[in-house]
């Protein structure tokens, strides 16, 4: 069991709530192996598939411009049975329905693999740096959430959110052999729906922060300071520093 297991049902609940409120929802089922995932896609997937740049004039639409709303969540579990492998759920309009307008964008990636443990977080995060690996799709160098562009060329070839889901699954699965199952959810239905997703994202971030601290502790870096000075072994050092500062201040006042 990993720390994110409790959030997988929360995401499912979010999707059901969206369904209950009448949002347009499409579900696709993708194959499992990286090669099968890539087969039949209208665009290339893999390192060097694009130049990394989509110019303004070549842009069909943007996803997740911060002004429109953006949110990204990555969850992983060592119980792949919690995941519907290959499921791609789209809440809201797809790329072809956008008419070239920017859409808000929420991206949830849920990863499962029996060998995955809490320490895998960093590696999985870095696997998610897409860079130049999806033709016609550029993730901007913006670190808070996903803000991306789809090129006119790719849109013309039929690039859709299903394509994106399959491409992401192929990249994650070929980047980490421990991944056995993967599910993606995309939300484009509106800023308010992204905000609701963001509430879950904020809780996930808090857990992620703890995981990061744990990872650094394992590496031998534990910089937590005891909040009570009287029990801290470094108190004499701090006292010395305070003394020096006091003397300096007295010199200055003279």
């Amino acid at each position: 069991m990993t720390v994110f297991d409790a959030y997988i049902p929360k995401i499912a609940e979010y999707v059901e709530n969206m369904r209950a409120t009448g949002r347009q929802i499409s579900v696709f089922s993708a194959p499992s192996s990286p090669q099968e995932l890539k087969d039949g896609l209208p665009i290339k997937v893999g390192p060097g598939s694009n130049s990394g740049i989509i110019l303004r004039e070549d842009t069909y639409m943007e996803l997740g411009n911060p002004e429109a709303g953006s949110c990204a969540i990555m969850l992983f579990t060592d119980r792949p049975q919690l995941i519907k492998d290959g499921a791609i759920t789209i809440i809201g309009p797809d790329i072809k329905d956008s008419g070239g307008k920017s859409l808000p964008f929420g991206q949830v990636v849920i990863i499962g693999g029996t060998g995955l443990d809490d320490n895998e977080h960093e590696a999985l995060k870095h696997t998610g740096f897409i860079g130049d690996q999806i033709q016609g799709y550029m993730v901007r160098s913006y670190t808070q959430s996903i803000w991306s562009r789809v090129s006119k060329d790719a849109a013309e070839k039929g690039f859709s959110l299903e394509t994106l889901g399959r491409a992401l699954m192929a990249l994650y699965k070929s980047g980490d052999s421990k991944i056995h199952a993967m599910e993606t959810i995309f939300v484009t239905s509106g800023k308010d729906d992204i905000k609701l997703l963001d509430e879950i994202a904020m809780q996930v971030q808090k857990i992620t922060k703890e995981l990061v601290m744990q990872t650094w502790k394992i590496r031998g870096y534990d910089i937590d300071c005891a909040s009570d000075c009287s029990s801290c072994s470094d108190k004499p050092v701090c006292d010395d520093i305070r003394e020096v500062l006091k003397e300096k201040k007295m010199d200055y006042d003279k």
């Binding site: 990394g52 995060k125 870095h126 740096f129 860079g131 130049d132 160098s141 670190t143 990061v212 990872t215 650094w216 870096y221």
Partner: peptide, 17 residues
Amino acid sequence: TTDFFCNDILQIVKDFK
């Protein structure tokens, strides 16, 4: 944090080749 600092380095290296 140092973790944040390191992540920026890795992302820049990857994104900007």
